[in-house]
Write a protein that binds this DNA or RNA. Structure first.
Lengths: 333, 333
DNA sequence: TTGTACGCGTTATCAG
DNA sequence: CTGATAACGCGTACAA
């Protein structure tokens, strides 16, 4: 069932069928109806490959993330997919894992598939050196590259990020205001995002007159269990802390576990602040005070930016979305 | 940069270039090298649309799930993507939400895109009536349909599922063996999977000589917080229970919250068993005893089945994977 | 072993 | 407003 069959059935030429289907140019209402009828009857759908061949696009964007099982990534995938679908774009998903070579290979596969753009979820895709990022710049020569919560300067590279610096600074300042004196920054990887959070952490404690030391930062393992063990070890080594600012909720949950398992009272003896305000924040007892970075808005913004880019509209390369501190049971002694 | 350019550059015809790239037929080693050189130099990649037009496939499978932010779905997406990528298939992801009409529309969009198969994650895609499932049967006339943890009988429809019945039966029997006398089944939706679990629950308690009553089943809200409230309400209404068998970990976490907030000791006064053995199981204190349904194996199995289907191999329509009870701190009084 | 010519199903162009 | 025809880039019989 192709356009020729429909044309024959409707008694018109394929050009007219095409025009009706793409409502391009003007077609008389009468023939329009005849064509639509035929299309309806045969349940005809234009062949996407032939279409792609002509238009050089299949209205598809590639999405790359490290790990879809991370609830934060998962939520982002959901929001992005909804936004794209609303704009008639489909989503090709790649879960790359942490290996840079895999990321590179996957990106080039997406390009070979002629995606119209690539969205990268998380700053884990931004490497430290120009050299390591080169594949991104090269990709940007073919299609727009957008970061969700990341940033990389370059032609045809865009990003939307939450204001991690301000959000963490505000959260830590608040906790210090309730009487905490020994803050700890708990994170799990040296990503760009973690860097911004750390800077906000430092700024907040220095504003409070507490001199910063690298010993106030704890690089934890990858999950709640390991974070808890990490904190226990730190305590054994005479590290004192009465405030844990975690880079994400899972680590904060680890801090809660640490406190519960060591008999430290929350929030009387220790305040804990998570980040992302994911559903994990409501899965522990007490529930987590956490920074909501408005992921939904960020995703919406990324999709908006993308559509404007497709329209050749000039837009700023970076959009910043403010965070918000959600108060629950792990702070406010 | 197309196949003609490469042919010219290598001094051969396009047919030869095509032959080299698809290593079909025999090509003399000399010309082969010349072609590969040209391909390399120009970094030539065949146009996927033209390719699709000829072969009528782009090696893509559609994946449908209700909600990618669910960690269970997310993990499945990860595993499936890895499996497919290893077989040179790409993945088109649809997050449908719960509305049946959306599911139907999204599926037909995938078909219009000429995906080679569709994988549905979770039994939420199987409806109660034939009528409601008709779109699935129709889709199966075009491409194979595979369920991850679901089942629907029909031509060209396949599924891999965990043995929820046995797994729950075993878990509940174990808990009853430790002395629990008032079991409760906590679930959140009347899916097929929940039905199998419930059946296992009933069988276990009847084996233990406890007569089943519908009051032993609690249909909870959608998250941990709501599950906790649900149990509190139940208790107010004089419902007694010292064992909660939850249909997933998030609900089990809700049960833990309920116990912690009401001052009920775990596991002395109440045993709690989760399902999925997701990372949530390690996010609460005490950590959850949970049923691991070997999601990784299930996903691997689905991909294997799919590849065999593509090879026109005859395979059983259903594969069953056994579950396993992982012991942690919420059971064993 | 290699090359020629055609078909795949669209959309775009241009003439009527 | 409509129709004929030329791209689009590839794979593949068939001929050489």
């Amino acid at each position: 069932m192709n356009i020729y069959d429909i044309a024959k059935k409707a008694g018109v030429s394929i050009a007219t069928v095409s025009r009706v289907l793409n409502n391009s140019a003007r077609v008389s209402e009468a023939t329009r109806q005849r064509v639509l009828e035929a299309v309806e009857e045969e349940d005809y759908k234009p062949n996407v490959f032939a279409r792609g061949l002509m238009l050089n696009t299949m209205k598809t964007v590639g999405l790359m993330c490290q790990d879809a099982s991370d609830p934060y990534m998962g939520a982002a995938i959901n929001y992005l997919e909804a936004g794209l679908r609303g704009r008639d774009y489909e989503m090709l998903l790649c879960c790359t894992g942490p290996d840079p070579e895999d990321k590179q290979r996957r990106l080039s596969q997406l390009l070979a598939r002629k995606v119209d753009a690539v969205i990268l979820i998380g700053s884990s895709f931004v490497e430290k050196t120009e050299e390591e990022n080169r594949y991104l710049y090269q990709a940007a020569q073919q299609v727009p590259i957008l970061f969700l919560n990341g940033i990389l300067n370059g032609e045809n590279i865009y990003g939307c990020m939450s204001d991690d610096y301000k959000a963490v600074k505000h959260a830590v300042s608040y906790a210090l205001g309730t009487g905490c004196r020994s803050p700890l920054f708990l994170y799990r990887a040296d990503t760009m995002s973690a860097g911004r959070k750390k800077a906000g952490f430092i700024s907040a404690i220095e504003d409070a007159g507490i001199p910063f030391s690298e010993r106030m930062c704890c690089l934890s393992g990858r999950n709640a269990r390991e974070a808890a063990e990490c904190l226990k070890a730190l305590r054994q080594n005479h590290g004192v802390f009465d405030l844990v600012m975690a880079a994400d909720d899972e680590l904060a949950v680890g801090a809660v576990k640490y406190a519960l398992e060591t008999g430290i009272r929350i929030p009387e003896d220790i305040s804990i602040i998570g980040y992302n305000n994911s559903y994990l924040a409501q899965c522990c007892t007490p529930e987590l005070t956490s920074v909501d970075n408005h992921l939904r808005d960020m995703c919406g913004s990324v999709v908006d930016m993308l559509m404007k880019i497709f329209e050749k509209e000039e837009i700023p390369h970076t959009t910043v979305i403010p965070g918000e501190l959600i108060m629950r049971g792990t702070t406010g002694r």
